[in-house]
Design a protein around this nucleic acid. Structure first.
Lengths: 318, 318
DNA sequence: ACCCGCCACTGACACTTGTCAATACATAAA
DNA sequence: TTTATGTATTGACAAGTGTCAGTGGCGGGT
């Protein structure tokens, strides 16, 4: 077999790299690459897929450029955001998956060495965690669970969100070793006095970035499936004006905290603490969440906001 | 005209963005996107090309992953490099262009806010400058010309390399306001005493990153076309063992500086100063430069090295 | 030695994408 | 108003790409 002008790759990994360079940097066609590498074109296709899936090749869509679209600019203006990313609506595709992807890109864009990243929970946050990948490994990253662990729906529990995200980006993972909700506020106070938890809360207070979603309080909402509060307790919050939940805390239409007895039994970051975090990325969208998201943004809980176009327009159309 | 499930883009810029997201993030086909956006598929093709060329979409090939190929690892090992990037050889394509692209990717990967980037000159360096583009703008970048300006071949002069690179990455540009070579070393000393030049040399000494190529001393070499030295002066260097030129300075086969009277009349960063810079990116390749590159790497002048496979193998095969 | 399972690889087909000359549209000048 | 000029867009064709069932080779197990 003749060597067609290139020394043959001696390791499998190498071949994937050569293919990636020849295709994406040199813009050769797959057939040309196949000839150069002495393999079939189908194999080149496989190499390129491998390169993409392993992150050897990463396609980045500038969040900077996207932040300059009309809607994103309007959202930034209206709610005083530092950054907004509005993805196109498709009408069909699974919105949570798509928002997760977008949120992952925003987070991946911003993360740097040494970051301590707080992570809330919910379907959207889990979706972000599931899809994130860094183009190169970063050293000294920490992911911290910012609310207690819930006993309800395990598919998007705080622990899962935290551990999935941390493993995807190669970060140290710190799970909060306490239930999200306790039966009395005295017990909560005693628990928080434990040295282990004190240490964890110190870490929570040192997060420089936090990722969270927005929950509504409707009949099919995540918060009602989460187990952090009974249906009656949630109803009580709603009676007191609550329209949204962020990281387990209820807020009214203007973004003000809605407190109560139940609130004082919860373990997790408080809204006043959240707002101290320099970089607060909120990912949320969907027709049913307009009111909840408006409340969140009006409350100034987010510095960066990721949504889709339909939601963005609804938020502006009020 | 019916709105096909998506609100129509109201600005041109927006359309390009939506297309980019739908194609690269959602992996929709161009036909689907065309339907969604109510334009022809050909227009979508144009949008996507626009998105790529404007850097809204950037395809990144992990230099981290490429550094793990056999040859790159061997080069790092042999010459004690921090990083090596070896691109595949094609036999046909224009090597300078391809190395320039690779070097640009390495530099773009490493540059961060606040950097002061020293830039040498030469065909390869110019090629890097010509092809670099940052995925997002970075603030407070400075590009410094590290050697005096030459009167010879203007196609790859120090000024051009510096100003092109700085404009491509949106950096402040500092050109060295002095000729590369003066007629006496006394004049050189006087000139360097000028406050303007003192200030510029201060900046040169504070560069934290430097980009340079390697010149050979053969009959058709860049240095002989550059005008920084006469053919006779170059011959004299060669007689004293010079096999390579980096940033206007001659070195022997082991990377040691080859001095001389001419050397003392040059304006530009010295080799001892070069080696103080924390991050030194060297881009070079080609069959005729093996000896010169070996000398450069043995001298420890580079921390990061970019080359092609054929050159890499030749460097290892010694 | 044999069989089995695994996985990289292949060939041919159907689909997706890029190209390019021609067209529609806008804006500015006559 | 018409004409000119440049730019965004299109349709149809050529070229490039993804898929998938099937092949071939290699190591582990019996």
């Amino acid at each position: 077999m003749l060597d067609a002008g290139v020394t043959l790759p001696t390791e499998f990994d190498d071949a994937v790299n050569w293919a990636a360079w020849l295709y994406y940097a040199d813009e050769m066609t797959q057939s040309e690459i196949a000839k150069t590498l002495n393999v079939s074109r189908a194999t080149v296709v496989n190499y390129l897929q491998e390169a993409r899936s392993r992150g050897i090749v990463s396609i980045r869509i500038s969040t900077y450029a996207s932040g300059r679209t009309k809607i994103a600019r309007a959202l930034k203006e209206k709610f005083g955001l530092e950054g907004a990313l509005v993805i196109p609506s498709t009408g069909n595709g699974d919105l949570v998956r798509r928002l997760g992807d977008a949120g992952a890109r925003v987070l991946a864009d911003q993360v740097t060495t040494g970051d301590v990243i707080g992570v809330a929970w919910g379907r959207t946050v889990l979706s972000v965690a599931d899809q994130i990948s860094l183009p190169e490994p970063l050293s000294n990253l920490t992911v911290v669970q910012v609310s207690g662990s819930s006993t309800g729906e395990p598919d998007f529990s705080p622990e899962l969100c935290t551990s999935l995200l941390s493993s995807r980006i190669g970060a140290r993972c710190v799970n909060l070793l306490a239930p999200a909700i306790l039966s009395t506020k005295e017990l909560r106070a005693m628990l928080l006095d434990e040295p282990v938890l004190k240490k964890q809360f110190d870490l929570i207070h040192s997060t420089n970035r936090i990722l969270f979603g927005v929950g509504d309080v409707g009949p099919k909402s995540t918060v009602r499936a989460s187990g952090i509060a009974s249906q009656r307790e949630i109803d009580t919050y709603v009676e007191h004006g609550a329209v949204a939940v962020i990281i387990g805390r209820f807020i009214d239409a203007h973004g003000r905290a809605v407190g109560g007895e139940h609130d004082e039994r919860m373990v997790g970051i408080a809204l006043e603490e959240l707002i101290q975090t320099p970089n607060r990325i909120c990912v949320a969208g969907g027709a049913g969440k307009i009111e909840a998201i408006t409340a969140t943004l009006e409350g100034g809980y987010a510095t960066h906001f990721v949504t889709d176009m339909a939601t963005g327009e609804a938020l502006l159309g009020v």
